[in-house]
Design a protein around this nucleic acid. Structure first.
Length: 358
DNA sequence: CAAACGTGGCT
DNA sequence: TAGCCAAGTTT
């Protein structure tokens, strides 16, 4: 039995290889495979659709062509280039890791998954992906696609977002791995998940693995797998702020590294949990002239928060003596050159208008 | 280890 | 609409 199962699996893997050679998409990091381009791609594409990340990959390759350029850049420049992509710790870790490679490793990337794993922002998936694709190391890269393909293929009903399920997927993915061509195999598994073994309406009839798949063609089984334990509920947060400006300059601050929008910029204000902004205000600014309010339409939805933004715009004579050291008094142009959350970036034209800075 | 961490597309 | 999902990692 074990013998026939292994034979069936080998057959499936060999069909996968043929399928990948004829169906893979033409992606830029595949045409000229380098460790830097691959690493950059893997970081950018974490929890991100190819369609969304592609332009960022090109932008980063142009702005920071190699690890030395990236290491030499300021963190603010890297965050600015990352603006709008989300999960900003990826950008900060990318920059930190570039510094490690450039200054501590003599500009030479690690050549093993274990070595890559040491770099900030590189977890088990990214380490396996780069090590297999660039150095031929026989390690299975398990991402969301592979979770789905493997859970359906072996008939796993353990939640894949829990330690036990994760271990089961890794074991099965490791057993399926084509050790002669691990990089192409890992890419093929992910490509299959992206193009054929999709979350909804997978095309089992087109799948090279259907012959050995425990779920193929069984609608209920395919829909159930991969089983997931679920996520925390999204809660409302009112994000209210004061825009203090003299028409030329404005008070802004860099947010701390930890937490939401780490390293991005903001206006002075407050975050109130459990509120939608309507009832939440900030105290009036003494001696300032009220210029109006800017309110984004609808909520700005993060993975775990629903943010209700609202800014009051005030005309002031200059920076207050009691503002504290972390507030910077920048021209609107200087402020806009900083990295901002999408919620604020979108409101920028209305903020400029209310501030009279046009 | 469960929760935190963005944004956009799709149903 | 509200929820799910996308080439995950960190704490």
């Amino acid at each position: 039995m074990k013998q026939t199962q292994n034979a069936a699996q080998r057959d499936s893997v060999s069909r996968l290889k043929v399928w990948f050679s004829t169906h893979q998409r033409d992606l830029p990091w595949r045409t000229h495979r380098t460790p830097y381009g691959t690493w950059l791609c893997e970081i950018i594409m974490q929890q991100t659709r190819i369609d969304q990340g592609l332009a960022y990959w090109h932008r980063f390759m142009e702005l920071f062509p190699d690890v030395h350029a990236l290491a030499a850049a300021g963190e603010g420049d890297v965050l600015k280039a990352w603006q709008g992509l989300g999960y900003y710790s990826r950008a900060r870790n990318l920059h930190r890791a570039a510094g490690v490679v450039a200054r501590e490793l003599g500009g030479v990337f690690p050549e093993t998954a274990a070595g890559w794993r040491e770099l900030p922002g590189v977890g088990p998936y990214t380490a396996a992906a780069v090590a297999s694709m660039c150095y031929g190391e026989a390690v299975a890269a398990v991402d969301g696609n592979v979770n789905r393909v493997v859970a359906r293929f072996v008939g796993l009903d353990e939640p894949v977002d829990r330690p036990a399920g994760r271990r089961a997927v890794e074991a099965a993915a490791g057993a399926l791995l084509d050790r002669e061509a691990p990089g192409a195999h890992n890419e093929a598994m992910m490509e299959l998940g992206a193009l054929v073994c999709t979350p909804r309406a997978p095309e089992c009839g087109e799948c090279p693995l259907s012959g050995g798949c425990a779920s193929a063609g069984v609608a209920e089984a395919v829909a159930r797998r991969p089983v997931k334990a679920g996520k925390a509920k999204v809660v409302d947060v009112a994000v209210v702020g004061h825009v203090l400006t003299d028409g030329v300059r404005v008070a802004v601050r860099r947010r701390p590294e930890a937490g939401i929008w780490g390293g991005l910029w903001e206006f002075p204000g407050a975050w109130v949990e459990g509120e939608r902004g309507g009832e939440v205000g900030l105290p009036p600014v003494g001696g300032a002239e009220w210029r109006g309010e800017v309110v984004p339409r609808g909520a700005h939805v993060l993975s775990h928060r629903r943010l209700w933004g609202r800014w009051g715009v005030w005309r002031v004579a200059g920076p207050g003596a009691d503002w504290g050291a972390d507030w910077e008094w920048l021209t609107w142009e200087e402020a806009q050159a900083k990295p901002w959350p999408r919620m604020t970036e979108r409101a920028w034209p209305e903020l400029l208008e209310a501030a009279g800075a046009l």
